[in-house]
Design a protein around this nucleic acid. Sequence first.
DNA 1: GTCGATTACGTATTACGTAACAATT
DNA 2: AATTGTTACGTAATACGTAATCGAC
Lengths: 293, 293
Amino acid sequence: MIETYLLEQLLAFSKAGTLSAAAESLYISQPALSRSMKKLEDVLGVPLFVRQKNRITLNENGEEAAKYAERILTQEEEMIRQLRMLEKRNHTIALGSCAPVPNYILPPILSRLYPEMTISQSISDEEKLVSGLKDGSLQLIVLHQKPVEDNVVYVPCGTEKLFICLPPDNPLSKKTEGVYLSELDGLNILLYSQIGFWYDLCREKSPGIRFLKQNDWESFGQLVDASTLPVFGSDYFFRLPMPENAPKRVVIPLLDEETFVTYYLTCLQSSYARFKPFFREVEGLSVDAPPLP
Amino acid sequence: MIETYLLEQLLAFSKAGTLSAAAESLYISQPALSRSMKKLEDVLGVPLFVRQKNRITLNENGEEAAKYAERILTQEEEMIRQLRMLEKRNHTIALGSCAPVPNYILPPILSRLYPEMTISQSISDEEKLVSGLKDGSLQLIVLHQKPVEDNVVYVPCGTEKLFICLPPDNPLSKKTEGVYLSELDGLNILLYSQIGFWYDLCREKSPGIRFLKQNDWESFGQLVDASTLPVFGSDYFFRLPMPENAPKRVVIPLLDEETFVTYYLTCLQSSYARFKPFFREVEGLSVDAPPLP
DNA sequence: GTCGATTACGTATTACGTAACAATT
DNA sequence: AATTGTTACGTAATACGTAATCGAC
């Protein structure tokens, strides 16, 4: 049996070239390393070095042994990595959503139902969500369309409606009955970048919009407050108890039917048993503001 | 870094099922193993066991870890095996021959020229000899035909002539000028089994011969002495200073041209430099009896 | 009572550091 | 003189064994 520290020290030597340099890199003394290498030769039963008076180098066996050592040490690292990942996966529920709103609503419910689990959340596009579900890196995903895959279970878990908030001096702000996305062509619109599929939708329907993207939520909020630039709004946010969501602006509904979406909470059939209580609770949930404190 | 003994102990536990049984199989005490498993969990940073009051079993992490442990330990064994093989290969010259005679003649010369090397010898068929040369398990081979391969070097290293030794009462023994192998059809012939290609040759030329095969050289010799059964003979053996090679028998030459062969000592081009002195010495060597003492 | 696991404590192994030395550049 | 590797010896870390305890069957 070859103890791992011997392999580690051999590899360090093969990289450093001298015992002294290797010993330094290992934070041990040179004599200790010298002895270890002798011991390794003893354990393996073959000489690994050619020893001159003042110099020690790997022989053919030693070169070969160093390659093996590297492979084995890599395997051990891989073992640790994988086990920690497995442990983590068994203690976290990874939720992925196509839009921010489900990520506001669902995690609190998950935390209550599975108090011992860590809840992780992320936003990405439909393709990545589905592949994440399949490869096990996501346990729950929220789509804005019914999933077409087999082997999944889904329920509607709320709706969301998109609005555009325009400054009163904009001519479109008079059309209180609503506008189409295509009518926004050419506008400069403030946008928080983490909004999932909504961005793609607007880009598709109205390629001429010039988005002023903000990655930081705080900065975005300040820009909304400090300017009268148009911003998108959602019925979800309008119901939150914030004083003013988009002050100094007129809220106009969008008329494209795609701006009213239903969210579908989805999991693999194989994990449905585990999440059944959650699905029960969420089924038919309307995307509403959380209860006032 | 995971010390190997921990992996070994984990694997032992996963095979034994209880700490006590595993400890026994490892020749250590139960508490020692208990502590080791705790330590392994500590090193890996994940729990590996479900601990009940009186029972400890692997959890999902543990099962996975045991698989990794087995892989890694196997790799280490493989490492030792391969290194020892490499060491051995670098200290032995493996000679393979298609017939026994070159194995009598060449090893003494090799020992003299390469005194620090171990000489190993074996007999097998042409196909295995060539593949052995190519895969490195043989460094020198002796064929009874010129090799057709590229990347090899060869020299003739002697000849051998086959005879048949018949009892005087056999009608064929009168044909002192010689007989063909095909004429031996139907005879019972004593045969020492380790004679390489000679056996295939006789089988091919005279399928009707009934061979009385002996694997043991001593037994074969005693049978030759104690009977008058026909046996094959070789000019090499006739020249040895033995009192009687095939007593009570008449030695008749075989007329098939294939019964006179030239041996070709062969090595890879890549190792010719190493064996050049040997080739020099052997070149044109006639397969003759060794000098009388 | 037996069997299996953990805890506590002492022991023995062994990997390591320091010091001294030898040899090369 | 500076660098590199080995030997000798003491030390410290640690893996192990023994004894005791707790629980379950």
